[in-house]
């Protein structure tokens, strides 16, 4: 494809990214570095601040879960309650990623079954990549950037909750050294979504063709946007391998949670995605 077409594709995906993802990397980094001009970010660093911070959290829950949880003692319920608000946010994020996927030129022309498969397998990878800009070595922004939750606090939760975020921190700290910006991220997310090797795809060829075009656009974007960063394109593609392992481990942890936590009920949309996944 012509360079001009690739630049137009990059612009289009960047615009879609800005339209569907409310917390950009630029905004998140401004909050994390204290450059937003206000001190509104609430810090959760222990159980007390978690209780205080819950009013900030997106706490839309399935009523039956609320009923179950309120019957428990507060110390046992706090992880589950927090986990449920994470699930609500994740379900909302899946909706945002779906809208972004639909904006990729050619995506909605694919077989509908294949669109479902691409999202089923791609969406958790996309969500994990999108966590990276929200994280630094000490913690992560949550709740659309209103809250900073410390890494130490997440590590202090009871097992297996304490094991959920640590691999994402390790990945994100390394990923952030690549210093991608939002316009690079938009193309990278599209590349992840358009993976032609997802299990059960019916018609791989058009997916690979779409991905190849976006890969060209990403390669050109990185050359122009990061002229001094050698091998950035290759390094970024390497991250896709690490990402698959993180998702596999994440799914296994969720399966473990489902077995061990009697009151744990997975959000219906997340259930659909997790079922028979790896």
């Amino acid at each position: 494809p012509e360079a001009a077409d690739l630049r137009a594709l990059a612009r289009h995906l960047y615009e879609a990214y800005l339209k569907y993802f409310p917390l950009t990397k630029a905004k998140a980094r401004a909050i994390l570095s204290g450059k937003t001009g206000d001190n509104a970010t609430f810090v959760i660093h222990d159980m007390k601040s978690l209780m205080e911070g819950e009013q900030f959290l997106n706490c839309r829950q399935i009523p039956i879960q609320e009923h179950h949880i309120s019957g428990q003692g507060p110390t046992n319920a706090v992880e589950l309650r927090f986990f449920h608000s994470c699930q609500s946010r994740s379900a909302e994020a899946v909706r945002e990623v779906t809208e972004f996927a639909k904006s990729i030129p050619g995506f909605t022309d694919l077989d509908l079954n294949d669109q479902v498969t691409l999202l089923k397998y791609g969406v958790i990878e996309v969500l994990i990549i999108m966590m990276a800009p929200l994280m630094n070595k000490d913690g992560t922004l949550i709740s659309y950037g209103q809250i900073f939750m410390t890494r130490e606090f997440l590590k202090s939760l009871r097992k297996p909750f304490c094991q959920m975020m640590e691999p994402k921190f390790e990945f994100s700290v390394k990923f952030n050294t690549l210093e991608l910006d939002d316009s690079d991220m938009a193309l990278f997310l599209a590349v992840i979504i358009l993976s032609g090797d997802r299990p059960g795809l019916l018609n791989v060829k058009p997916i690979e063709q779409l991905q190849e075009t976006v890969l060209h656009a990403l390669e050109l974007q990185l050359k122009l946007n990061h002229p001094d960063s050698l091998q950035l394109f290759a390094k970024l593609l390497q991250k896709m391998t690490d990402l698959r392992q993180i998702v596999t481990d994440h799914v296994h942890l969720l399966q473990l949670l489902k077995k061990t936590e009697v009151d744990m009920c997975l959000h219906p949309l997340l259930q659909e995605i997790m079922k028979d996944l790896y």
Binding site: A91, R95, T98, L112, N113
Partner: peptide, 21 residues
């Protein structure tokens, strides 16, 4: 596949508002 993934399918077919989730 579509049958097993009704919500994903719905999200793909329509613009679903946050309230619907």
């Amino acid at each position: 596949l579509k049958e097993k993934h009704k919500i994903l399918h719905q999200l793909l077919q329509n613009s679903t508002s946050p309230v619907d989730l």
